[in-house]
Amino acid sequence: MTELLGIPPQVLFGQVLLGLINGAFYAVLSLGLAVIFGLLNIINFAHGALYMTGAFVAWFLLSYLGLGYWWALLLSPVIVGALGMVLERTLLKRIANLDHLYGLLLTFGLALIIQGLFRNYFGSSGQPYQIPPLLAGGHNLGFMFLPNYRAWVVAASLVVCLGTWFVIERTKLGSYLRAATENPVMVQAFGIDVPRMVTLTYGFGVALAAFAGVLAAPIYQVSPQMGADLIIVVFAVVVIGGMGSILGSIVTGFGLGIVEGLTKVFYPEASSTVIFIVMAIVLLIKPAGLFGRAA
């Protein structure tokens, strides 16, 4: 096989694939953040901790109930989403009309508590989680080896992201959501139970995080730290894409994953900082983010 720019194709495509996988997690997580920020005006710092909780729920389901990956993929988002709704009703609701800073502090505190609880029980070591048998192995595509599970992660994330985008931008329910993001008072005066919609939206955003957590479980180890490491990068993605933009978070999430992967090939030293460099540049040129509307 010929080399591209002096790089063996296996290496190049391998890194692009790794980038896509990371990008898939960035996209699903920043999408949840965008949906939550749009309607609740809260920068949900607990998102990483809830992603981690999602992975742990999968692990619990398997270890204690013998329920495998596919059940976890379904149940973990439901369980974590329900937990999110309880958090919204009992805590977030109280600060709904205050400055962003309060939401940030509250959710940051929640993140620390949730992580602390898990660390207390599991230490900082990771728990292994097996790839489901159906998705074990891989395919040799000639120019690279494609593990089935990784292909699945990218495909499942894409489907979830596009499905969410479709619901928000193209359906009646989505029009309620977009309208309530702009003017919740008026939407409620049309007869829509906006407080309930807010609770469900938070639950949905958080369920997306849990879904990502289950997807991640077989790739990374299930550890209390897994969310904290990821969430900082995801916030950079959100800033680059434009706070609250649905399409922005999806495109930016996948795009930056690939950028990161390519950086690993061509200039590995910068691979862990490239996203923050992009963020700085975007903030200088377009402070509202690539897809953001100027405030």
Partner: peptide
């Protein structure tokens, strides 16, 4: 008036249940 910018005219019109 409270016309929604992120909704087109049809969606605005059909918004109230």
């Amino acid at each position: 008036r409270a016309i929604f910018a992120s909704l087109n005219v049809r969606e605005n019109l059909l918004l109230p249940p």
